[in-house]
């Protein structure tokens, strides 16, 4: 369990997002520390995925600040940057509705993740000199290593669309890991998984944190998984943060129970 001495690597201050007249996010503060697993929960439509989209550059937040401090590097503000630049800076994500490259093989999917860490261009591709060749080899080797870690090395040459659902979810994680992030954002990684697969996912996420020293911010509806995994939990409802704290505190927080069950509970 990482203690509070660990430095903050993602600091979101007063994040707000308007879609026309609709305020999807309102003054949300969230922070993630190094080697920490943080969960973001809330009822459907609370703005969790919007929050992810704002951080990863798919949306430009209306107000507020997103500041990253990657370990060993200077901190910087990343709101309004394009998604590919955010990824290059070390924030990588998966999607709620799986967005794999269906007609590419498992290995190729992960190879795409290596794109932003490699550099050969058009001329290199045409001439295929020694530098390009060795880079291509390294891409295949690194991608394969990641797949071995995730446990998908059996099906490297399968098309992504032919994988079973649980493996597709894991492939998304593998692809995100290939971009060498310091913070991994998982959007409902356990959705549609059976209890056995969820258990394996629990183990996988811990291993990523412990072995790769990657912090994790996840959105999840499976409360068992959230309670067992997370060091801290943030709860949002109607675009506002309504609670934060350790799993034990959140479980008994009256505001959270009210948001989920929709009734008044006397504290």
């Amino acid at each position: 369990m990482p203690s509070l001495e660990h430095p903050v690597i993602l600091d979101v201050r007063g994040l707000g997002m308007n879609f026309g007249g609709l305020r999807a996010l309102d003054n949300v503060d969230i922070d993630v520390r190094e080697k920490e697993i943080v969960a973001l929960i809330g009822p459907n439509g609370a703005g969790k995925t919007t929050f992810f989209n704002c951080i990863t550059g798919l949306y430009e937040p209306t107000d507020g600040e997103v500041i990253i401090s990657p370990p060993g590097r200077k901190s910087e503000k990343i709101n309004g940057l394009k998604p590919n630049i955010v990824t290059a800076k070390g924030l990588s994500r998966t999607f709620q509705n799986i967005r794999l490259f269906q007609n590419m093989t498992v290995l190729e999917n992960v190879m795409i993740g290596r794109h932003c860490r490699t550099s050969s261009g058009i001329v290199g591709a045409i001439l295929k000199g020694p530098a390009t060749r060795s880079e291509e080899k390294a891409i295949v080797r690194d991608s394969y290593a990641i797949l071995e870690k995730i446990g998908l090395d059996e099906s490297v040459n399968e098309f992504a669309k032919n994988l079973p659902y649980g493996e597709q979810r894991r492939l998304e994680i593998a692809r995100a890991l290939a971009t060498e992030p310091f913070l991994l954002l998982l959007d409902e990684p356990a959705a549609g998984m059976n209890p056995q697969e969820t258990l394996e996912l629990d183990d996988l996420i811990r291993r990523i944190r412990d072995e790769e020293s990657i912090s994790i911010l996840l959105i999840e509806h499976d409360m068992k998984l959230v309670m067992s995994l997370s060091d801290r939990i943030f709860v949002v409802d109607y675009g506002r943060k309504i609670a934060q704290g350790a799993p034990g505190e959140i479980k008994n927080n009256p505001a959270v129970i009210k948001a989920y069950l929709g009734e008044d509970v006397d504290a």
């Binding site: 490259f101 591709a125 971009t179």
Partner: peptide, 24 residues
């Protein structure tokens, strides 16, 4: 090549392609 794979990824899913660090 790396660029060819990026093209195919762009064809498959524009949003995911960008989120994986490819400059659309």
């Amino acid at each position: 090549s790396r660029i060819g794979r990026a093209w195919i990824a762009l064809r498959e899913d524009e949003v995911a392609c960008q989120a994986m660090g490819i400059d659309k």
